Simulated scan of single mutants.
Amino acid sequence: MRLNEPRVRPVNMDALTPDQAEVLAPLGAGGVIPAGRVLNIFRTLAHAPKALKAFLTWGNYILSKKNDLPAREREIVILRTGWLCRSGYEWTQHVEIGLRCGLTPDEIPRLKAGPDAGWSPADAALVRAADELHADQFVSTPTWAALLAHFGEKQAMDVVFTAGQYTQVCMMLNSFGVQLDDGQTLDPDFAKA
């Protein structure tokens, strides 16, 4: 975590404005705010409800079946991006999601190590693309060719869309100081940064 406390505190769920209540309603269990746990990321971004609404539209594309990357491969890109951006919140949330989407427990630490950490050629291309996008905001010609050797053109585009979305997410999480949700534990490797 970059900050030990939030710069922007999550909104109080008992004191929402009408705009905040409207944008947060679908994020609670069954669409009822009091019944569901609304994550700190959304409670923080709710200070700007119109921005949150727009953010959710694009984020829903990235996490939906409209994104042509299979869920496991999408999570490889998200987690590598979260690691490179040093976003403990993003990493913590998406390790759980990644495991549910088919990543194995031994693959999680390899995401920290990079594209040469024993990945298949397809997975290494995803990790390398995330690295290049983070470092240079550009996928090199050899890495693009490696992506196309394993994925369709639209899937390769979705790699860029996914890395870009989660770079933005990490920027917000890190800068606003969004803290882990109740019951979560920070990966100790983030404390070393």
Rank of each mutant, 00 (worst) to 15 (best):
L39F: 06
L111Y: 11
G102E: 01
K66R: 13
E22K: 15
Y61A: 04
N12E: 15
T17C: 08
L147M: 04
M157V: 12
H150S: 07
S87L: 04
L103Q: 03
L79D: 07
P70V: 04
A145N: 01
G164R: 07
Y89D: 03
R7C: 01
P6W: 07
F138N: 01
L69R: 02
G183R: 05
A71R: 08
T104Q: 14
L52I: 05
K53T: 05
D136S: 08
E153P: 03
P105S: 09
G36E: 09
F55H: 11
P26W: 15
R86N: 11
V159L: 10
A113M: 13
H150V: 01
G177E: 15
I41H: 03
L180E: 15
L69I: 01
G28F: 15
T143P: 01
L52G: 01
V159A: 07
D106R: 01
W83Y: 15
S175Q: 14
N60A: 10
T141W: 00
D182G: 12
D158C: 09
G31I: 04
K154G: 00
L111H: 03
E153K: 11
V38M: 13
T141F: 00
G98I: 00
G164F: 12
P70Q: 02
G59F: 06
T17M: 11
N67Q: 08
Q155T: 02
D123Y: 02
L27V: 14
A149I: 02
L39N: 01
A191E: 13
G102K: 03
A124S: 13
T162P: 10
A156T: 06
P121Y: 10
L126A: 10
P18Y: 02
D14N: 13
L173C: 08
P109K: 09
K65W: 00
F151E: 01
L180G: 12
P26C: 15
M172P: 01
V11R: 13
V169H: 14
A146P: 02
A146M: 04
F190A: 14
P18D: 05
D189K: 00
T81Y: 02
P26S: 15
